[in-house]
């Protein structure tokens, strides 16, 4: 469970995140939706402790993201925006590296990587070096790397970026599976349809501020629109940055 309370972050004079609050519960998929540059990535970066907030507070399973970074990171799997893989290592070695950094033994890793390869349908290329991988294969490797230590909380920053239709469908399936076993999944996207299909809870962010949040129904309700796209445009006040 991730609880965010009035989180703030500025870069110089630019206020990237301005008092953002929301809760991403366990066993649910929470989507951060917003146009490019809305502050989604900055919010997520603070949650996975790459950035320090200027104000506010956030808890991951009760751990403070500023004071208890190690505990937060230990219980979190992160797929960063445009995550790169080590091209001279095989997919398996990429995943094993992060597993080891999370304290997993070789025996645990062998078993876990095979499990992930089955789940993400990557058995075909799991022992190939990543150089020349398609974007889909790279994303799967990076996702497997994020999931290797079975983190309870999973953060995915625009995971479908650069994926084709089939790969996107596959990823959606994976995210649903993660939810079904009780993970807290928080992911960001600027694609409204994707969020509508997948999410139980939606947090719409624009200009660093939460414009609306709740279940898709609640959002339609609060904005007075029948259709989620119109609700979205209504909430952020513009269709700029939308697909």
């Amino acid at each position: 469970m991730i609880e965010v309370n009035a989180l703030e972050k500025s870069f110089g004079a630019i206020r990237a995140v301005n008092k953002v609050s929301f809760t991403a519960p366990d066993g649910k998929i929470t989507g951060l939706l917003g146009p490019n540059g809305a502050g989604k990535s900055t919010t997520l970066r603070m949650l996975y402790t790459a950035l320090k907030p200027d104000g506010g507070q956030a808890l991951v399973d009760g751990w403070d993201i500023v004071k208890e970074t190690t505990a937060v990171k230990t219980n979190m799997g992160v797929l960063t925006h445009n995550a790169g893989v080590y091209e001279r290592l095989t997919a398996r070695e990429n995943i094993a590296y992060f597993g080891r950094l999370n304290g997993m033994s070789n025996k645990e890793l062998d078993f876990r990587i095979d499990e992930l390869a089955d789940m993400l349908e990557m058995t075909e290329f799991i022992d190939r070096r990543c150089k020349g991988f398609s974007q889909g294969q790279k994303t799967k490797t990076a996702l497997a790397r994020a999931l290797v230590h079975k983190p309870k909380n999973i953060i995915l920053d625009e995971p479908t970026n650069g994926l084709d239709v089939m790969a996107t469908r596959g990823l959606r399936q994976v995210i649903n599976n993660l939810k079904d076993v009780g993970h807290c999944v928080l992911f960001s996207s600027h694609i409204m349809q994707e969020v509508a299909v997948l999410c139980d809870e939606i947090v719409i962010i624009a200009h660093g501020v939460v414009a609306a949040s709740g279940t898709p129904d609640e959002i339609r309700h609060s904005t007075g629109q029948d259709n989620l796209e119109d609700a979205f445009v209504q909430a952020i006040g513009t269709d700029e940055g939308l697909l």
């Binding site: 190690t70 992060f98 994020a146």
Partner: peptide, 8 residues
Amino acid sequence: EPLLAQPV
């Protein structure tokens, strides 16, 4: 960035 997100 993913590396920095590890508990190290």
